[in-house]
Design a protein around this nucleic acid. Sequence first.
RNA 1: GGGCUCGUAGUGAAGCUGGCCUAUCACGCCUCCCUGUCACGGAGGAGAUCGCCGGUUCGAAUCCGGUCGGGCCCGCCA
Length: 434
Amino acid sequence: MRILSKDLHDHIGKPVMIQGWLHKKRLLGGLTFINVRDRGGLVQVVLKDKNEVEKLRGLQIGTVLEVEATVKEEPRAPGGVELHDAKLTVMVPVTEEPPIEIDKPLSHKSDNLDTLFDNRVIGLRNLQETKIFKIRSELTRYIREYLYKNDFVEINTPKLVAGAAEGGAEVFKLDYFGREATLAQSPQLYKQIMVGVFERVFEIAPAFRAEMSATTRHVSEVTMLDIEMGFIKDHSEVMDTLQGLVYNVLTRVYEEHGDDLKSLNAPELVIKPEFPRFTMAEIHQMYSKATGKDTSKEIDLTPEEEKWICEYTKKELGCEAVFATGLPRSKMKFYHMANDENTARSADLLFRGVEISTVPQREHRHENLVQQMKDAGIDPNSPGFSHFVTAFKHGLPPHGGCGFGIDRLTEKVIGLANVKEAILFPRDINRLAP
RNA sequence: GGGCUCGUAGUGAAGCUGGCCUAUCACGCCUCCCUGUCACGGAGGAGAUCGCCGGUUCGAAUCCGGUCGGGCCCGCCA
């Protein structure tokens, strides 16, 4: 029976069989060390028999091996155990040398990202890269667990749609059996419709943005977490939910994967269960006072203010996540609810200097919604929107929600410089493969 | 869409105010030595028409023009 590298402690003194990839060879003459990688990690195998070593001659990193050996406790070995008296069987010989380093950290300098992604298929086997995506996987697991626990139902909505979901971002157009369709840039309308079914829903799925942007923050295919919840008093209730989620997920990933985060040079986490909340007007005032730069005429927060307020709350209040409320009504989308003449019922969640999510209440009153659609130049009877309006005609409670990119979350948690580094096979204006 | 940048072995870098470049170093690869390595160490070796095209020049990796392919910032967006 196959034993995993991480379980070898339970088999000390016993014969075991492991299977994995040759990860590293170190030939010391009469003694050879090899590392074998499986899904549990690495294990060191000691080879003294020249015939066994000879089996690996000419074989490269990536060779798939089966090893039958005895587990020995050995303080000098990484992990405290190693395999002795090994008999090797080559399951898949690899003679091609790897195109990219697999044992030492890969360059993530922006000039080298192209090489990094060109060789992604093999480069992802590099343990530093693997860590990034293990952490990403854990983040989505924590998100799911938290939301399930709070009565949310996970849904899947179509990505081939008839019209643009929310205006704003550019959409990809494609031929759909002779008709024009677009790739969904957000599940926005569908998740609101689903509030009429489950009250609380969420989705983790790709969204497609055809923006001609070439920056460290943009990709054309993003993985979005979208949340929507019904029967709320106002958007502050959604803020509470998002705050609980983000606090839980962040503290948990630092608790359970602190070592990996450290080895990836992730910044320390400074966070409290209650995130500070300021209005944008207050932030303008505080920023202007602290820096002498007058931003009182700005409507939205400037990028510098976003950085500043996160630094400020981190230092002064011990929390690098902060809500900015009072989004100006002029920046409101047609499905948002107005708060008063000047502001929308909405807040931005800022973390480590950037906006990671917008948290609005939706306009759930049919008449108001139709009016706001018309004001935005959208025909409520058009194929992309008529079904959305129908849901409201048949009763949607007050509701609100939010969404954020899993890619950017992973990037920010680890402290990566480019969102693409947090994506297995990133898609941008220049890249469609691998 | 606008601006600014970069392109040298499989990988990462140096050289780039022209000649000492027959292009340097590190990782990786090949051969040999090495019984506790873990970024193993040591000796030797192979591997690059310096993105491509053209120009200037006695001479171009180096200067100029074009071209192709990247990157970063702004706008837009998340």
